[in-house]
Amino acid sequence: MGILKISEELHEELRLSSKVMSRSINAQAEHWIKIGMLAEFNPSLGYTELVAMLMENPNISVHSLSQKAVSA
Score class of each variant (00 low, 15 high):
residue 64 S to R: 07
residue 36 G to L: 02
residue 34 K to D: 07
residue 43 P to N: 08
residue 24 S to Y: 04
residue 67 Q to D: 09
residue 60 I to D: 06
residue 46 G to W: 00
residue 19 K to V: 14
residue 50 L to H: 09
residue 34 K to C: 09
residue 22 S to Y: 05
residue 48 T to F: 02
residue 30 E to K: 06
residue 7 S to Q: 03
residue 22 S to C: 10
residue 35 I to D: 03
residue 44 S to A: 11
residue 41 F to I: 02
residue 55 M to G: 14
residue 14 L to S: 02
residue 68 K to D: 13
residue 34 K to W: 09
residue 12 E to H: 15
residue 19 K to L: 15
residue 4 L to E: 09
residue 12 E to P: 01
residue 5 K to V: 12
residue 47 Y to K: 14
residue 9 E to R: 11
residue 59 N to I: 13
residue 64 S to W: 03
residue 69 A to V: 12
residue 31 H to K: 14
residue 34 K to A: 10
residue 26 N to R: 12
residue 60 I to C: 11
residue 16 L to W: 04
residue 46 G to T: 00
residue 3 I to L: 09
residue 8 E to N: 01
residue 56 E to Q: 11
residue 29 A to L: 10
residue 16 L to N: 10
residue 17 S to W: 00
residue 45 L to N: 01
residue 68 K to W: 09
residue 41 F to C: 05
residue 21 M to W: 08
residue 58 P to R: 13
residue 59 N to Y: 15
residue 6 I to N: 08
residue 63 H to I: 11
residue 55 M to R: 15
residue 14 L to Q: 02
residue 48 T to N: 04
residue 22 S to I: 03
residue 4 L to M: 09
residue 71 S to D: 10
residue 18 S to K: 06
residue 44 S to F: 08
residue 53 M to H: 05
residue 23 R to H: 10
residue 69 A to H: 10
residue 28 Q to E: 11
residue 69 A to G: 05
residue 71 S to N: 13
residue 51 V to D: 01
residue 37 M to G: 01
residue 3 I to S: 09
residue 32 W to I: 03
residue 51 V to M: 05
residue 34 K to S: 12
residue 72 A to Y: 06
residue 57 N to M: 08
residue 66 S to V: 14
residue 9 E to F: 05
residue 32 W to S: 04
residue 39 A to Q: 02
